[in-house]
Design a protein around this nucleic acid. Structure first.
Lengths: 196, 196, 196, 196
DNA sequence: TATGAATGAGGATTCATTCAT
DNA sequence: CATGAATGAATCCTCATTCAT
């Protein structure tokens, strides 16, 4: 009965960060279906039990990972929008470029699909999902202001982008990402002008 | 103890149909997560083993269910489009109304989300998904023809609709379905006119 | 990031006492199954690790808690028996009233059931259990002395009481506690007289 | 991905019986704490998953095992009582001899202790426990009839026996089983006569 | 003393899938 | 065709325990 339980082997510097980053990497490499608590622990050199110690459940882990991923992106987005004195068209293009998945199997969007699926039966996940989307909405509203119907604008543009993102991340046949960015930007600009 | 195994208990008229419809109902009522082969069998009075016999795998079952659901919808769509001599705007409105989920937790769209998720790691599912979407694409192209860039139009409208559908089916906060239909239709009409 | 680990946060006056009392309360409120070292620590404002530091193991904690509970009861029992110049019948009634659980889910008896279960595979627990019961035995022997077969008397009465206690603490159907006390007292008195 | 799932390897004659008997044996040999679903399955040559298939949960398994054990004992008890035209005293002795555990770590009583413990937090287990005890109660009432207060008699005798049984099964210090049977029988007879 | 991060064993549970009957 | 018993993989999560600080 020589249990090693409790023996500390390694102390991570920024455990949360490290685990979250590892989760993103693992998802990108092998997909979400392959992601296990134990496997994730092994990736960063801690026990599976400890991953569960940081994140109450796997559901929590997924939401947290998405949230963290979006926070990092949020910083880049705000930098882009704040610093820019470029015309709105260009800033919209930058926004859209950040919004859409980088590639097929992009981790962040893999998580979005998962969160959508899970939010079907779980109000908490749904709420988390709305909250995570929040900053995007705020920044887009600021970007197009003044605009008579910002809610409608955001709904239309975000819905379009979500649909495009789904196609990119799943690898559905169609134009490449650059073309999609172009089309979405045209739409975004046209809409922004058209009703101003 | 005489085993009843092997005894034909019941002979369904249209086994496939019955099972598929039952799957749709079960998903609408309890969600996809609750759908088990055995439970589905019980719903229609056959064994779980026999459900697996009809559909090679659960993945197959899901794809088949979605395909079947879309086929039935396809008939309604074609009826709508063929019979109609209404202006394009009205026909687009009808198309959109059919496309979007009827309600939160709509079975068909629950399946779409699942299929998207599964297509991430499975090329076959991805192919099936494209194939199932096909008729929608055909009919939309026909509806707007002649139009200089039908592929772009379809991509934009379908992406927008997919994004809106996701919000409806998950129950995300936002305007109600009717408003979404209105906005999508405006967009569809504007696009169709704008570049004609 | 300066760690607060190692910083003394709070110094309990009588740490053992406080923890033991908290354990009793927690068991009464949520049951033994819900009792965790960490949860118990939180209840009294110390760390779960420190609870383990006071009590070598959870097994120890349970036995200690029972022992402590019985010690406190022992004081009341001795007060009752020493001070009393009431007839034996009344003193037996008092003894029995103290012995039996106060109510369904009574902490002390919840612990007795647990200790019985654990003593099945652990001689140490069995020994502790016998030791904790000791004072009851002593006091009962004194109470009925002189009596020709005190061991038999104690065995019979304690067994009867243990059986009744089990019914009370589990909430098994049957007469209420008062009626049980009455019946046990009659038995105790009758036995004490019958063979004197 | 060559899964052997679904490949039937062996078909037990009386699966339930076999598993229940194996559970009794395993408990007697290694204690309840060592009993795992998988281990139990291995013992009888079926998979752990299949043990769970027969018994919804481990809790169920325990209750079922106790019930089955008691049913078998019930047959012996009824045989004893029905066939006997011996005096009540002898028949009470037989009843008591059947009631009490055969030995330290007796499986049936190990299960009783566990069921008592679990019934503390689970009304269903409590109900099952009362139901399983039922036949003993019936037979005892029949055995002593007519008797002015059968409920009281049963409560007193069963409580006494439960207390004695606890001591036998845990291996608590005290007289040996035979002596306990003697004392309990004396008590049972005296009570039965005393108030008739 | 006191903390609390980290360990890691441990087992139940669920179900798609298979196949003898 | 149809049954349903049997498989077994797959993994989450809990929590007592340890120990560097």
């Amino acid at each position: 009965m020589l249990s090693m339980a409790g023996t500390r082997r390694k102390r991570l510097e920024q455990p949360r960060e490290v685990v979250l980053q590892a989760a993103m990497d693992a998802i990108a490499e092998h997909g979400l279906a392959q992601l296990t608590m134990a496997g994730l622990g092994k990736r960063v050199g801690i026990s599976g039990g400890h991953v569960a110690y940081y994140f109450r459940s796997k559901e929590q882990l997924l939401v947290e990972t998405l949230r963290w991923s979006e926070q990092r992106l949020g910083e880049r987005r705000r930098a882009l929008l704040d610093a820019s004195d470029a015309p709105v068209a260009e800033r919209l293009a930058g926004y859209i470029d950040l919004y859409l998945p980088d590639r097929r199997a992009d981790s962040r969007w893999t998580l979005w699909l998962e969160v959508w699926t899970r939010s079907l039966g779980d109000p908490e996940v749904l709420a988390a999902s709305a909250e995570i989307e929040g900053p995007w909405v705020e920044d887009l509203r600021a970007l197009i202001a003044p605009y008579p119907d910002p809610d409608g604008y955001v709904l239309r543009l975000h819905s379009l982008l979500d649909g495009l993102a789904t196609r990119i991340v799943t690898g559905a046949p169609g134009p490449d990402r650059a073309e999609m960015v172009r089309q979405a930007t045209e739409f975004a600009v046209r809409e922004a002008r058209g009703e101003r």
